[in-house]
Simulated assay, not measured.
Amino acid sequence: MSKLIRAMIFLLLSKASYAQICQINNISATTPNNRFSNEGAITIDNKTGLMWKRCAEGQQWNDITSNCDGDGNEYNWNKALAQAKTMNNNGGFMDYKDWRIPNISELNSIIEYQCYEPSINLFIFPNPPSKYWSSSPLGHSILGRDGIWFANFDGNFNEFQSGFEDWTYEQELFHIRLVRGE
């Protein structure tokens, strides 16, 4: 068997074996399915009252498979904020024109601390990218530059760690998941 074929088989098998890991016996679910009311491409968090797009911007909701198709688009922070406005100005989504980038507390509210790789409820938010911008500035400058909070739903490859918040500079490229409501 050629080296190329063996490499392709290895890559396919390693991708297929990648799966979310959940500590269902040790940690209670923080975002159980019954907390949400799904309406196709959107879901309502019955605890917070927020309405979320189930897919990241650039992904497409598939009604047949109940999945988010595609990888989604990445934006720097300023373009992420502009994308939400552009989408609303161009007719919105599902008859709503008040979608926005969530603040860091809102993003943290959908982290599933029971699971990692990724740390999100995959039934509610299928096929998620890992890092999402928030609308929350860090609140102070680091080395003369402003920082922005983001949520990382990937956790840690080397040891159990659920999703977490962190900050970076606004030129980094991350995904966005839009929300509406207060």
Rank of each mutant, 00 (worst) to 15 (best):
D95W: 12
H140W: 10
Q83C: 08
N103I: 06
R145H: 04
D146R: 14
D95R: 15
L143Q: 05
I124Y: 02
Y75I: 01
S105W: 08
C115Y: 01
F93W: 12
I101L: 15
Q83V: 14
N158R: 13
Y75F: 15
L81K: 15
W77G: 01
Q161N: 11
D69I: 10
G144L: 06
S135I: 08
Q83P: 00
I148Y: 06
E106F: 00
R145Q: 15
D98W: 15
Y116F: 03
K97V: 09
R100P: 00
G144F: 10
S66M: 05
S119I: 05
F153R: 00
N121E: 09
F157Y: 08
Y96Q: 13
A84I: 06
D98H: 13
H140T: 04
L143T: 03
Y116E: 13
P126Y: 05
D69S: 11
S135R: 13
S135E: 04
I111S: 01
R145I: 05
N127L: 08
F160A: 09
F123Q: 12
I104T: 04
R145S: 07
M94C: 07
F150M: 04
S162K: 05
P128K: 13
Y96P: 00
E112C: 05
I142H: 04
M87K: 12
Q161D: 03
G163C: 11
S119E: 09
T86S: 14
G91P: 06
G70L: 07
F93R: 05
S119Y: 04
L122H: 08
Q114G: 12
R145D: 05
Y132F: 11
K79T: 09
L138I: 03
N88D: 12
A80Y: 01
S119H: 10
F157Q: 12
N89I: 06
H140A: 05
N158S: 06
P118V: 10
Y75Q: 02
S66T: 07
Q161M: 06
L107Q: 07
S130V: 13
N108H: 08
I120E: 00
M94D: 15
N103K: 10
E117V: 04
G91S: 06
E117A: 07
D146W: 09
I104F: 14
Q83G: 02
N127D: 12
M87E: 14
D69A: 07
D71V: 11
C68V: 03
Y75R: 04
K85M: 06
S119D: 04
E112P: 10
P102G: 06
Y96D: 10
W149R: 03
I104A: 11
A151Y: 01
Y132W: 13
L107V: 04
F153C: 06
